[in-house]
């Protein structure tokens, strides 16, 4: 099993200030944690760093899910301010709706987590097959195990390439800066 890096310590949290304000303190730090792994990801063999990036992405995902209520649809926010319509918050049928751009950003994060998860799954399967083959003590690898190892290596390669393609596409579109700018508003 790969060693998982600890979550970065969040600084600047203000318990007595609003949830809304703290979302803008915490979320950028979660994004930065993800990008600390960026220098390693162009090497397919850096499985530990790829795994750690997946975990950091998962932490960002969960944190974004925690704070979605702090990023409401802007028209609803305006109505809340101008009408002081407290009923809007209470009525089940009129739950505040999360800003669609926030939902789109979150969907990208979930997608990255899943494809890195596929890569990691292949790494674990390869470990298990190799350990099983070694434990069997046979000099020649059983054909079935050899078949599955070859197949899993191919899948891993394809999954890694998919991940890298997606990452580079996001990089060229300045995804990180756009996400940070959106979250700061």
């Amino acid at each position: 099993m790969d060693e998982v890096a600890k979550a970065h310590k969040i600084i600047g949290v203000a318990p007595g200030r609003s949830y809304h304000e703290n979302a803008r303190i915490i979320l950028p730090q979660k994004i930065e944690e993800v990008w600390t792994w960026e220098p390693f990801i162009r090497d397919a063999a850096r499985r530990e760093e790829l795994h750690n990036m997946r975990i950091s992405i998962k932490r960002l995902r969960y944190t974004m899910e925690l704070f979605h209520v702090a990023y409401r649809n802007s028209s609803q926010q305006e109505r809340l301010v101008t009408e002081s319509n407290t009923q809007l918050l209470c009525a089940e049928s009129q739950q505040p709706v999360t800003d669609s751009r926030y939902v789109e950003f979150l969907a990208v994060i979930v997608d990255l987590q899943e494809i890195l998860g596929d890569v990691h799954d292949c790494d674990v399967v390869l470990d298990v097959l190799t350990a099983y083959a070694n434990g069997a003590g046979a000099e020649v690898l059983a054909p079935s195990v050899a078949t599955l190892i070859a197949r899993t290596k191919e899948t891993r390669k394809a999954d890694y390439e998919t991940f890298l393609r997606k990452w580079e596409h996001l990089s060229t579109r300045d995804f990180k800066q756009k996400l940070l700018s959106f979250l700061a508003k």
Binding site: P15, R17, S18, A23, H68, V69, Q95, V103, L106
Partner: peptide
């Protein structure tokens, strides 16, 4: 993990939270 639709974020209790309340 099960794939959670990002268009339907289901978190326990979070929808009941007002972002104007204190973090604590």
């Amino acid at each position: 993990e099960k794939i959670i639709s990002t268009h339907d974020i289901k978190e326990p209790g979070i929808k009941r939270i007002s972002p104007d309340e204190t973090l604590e």
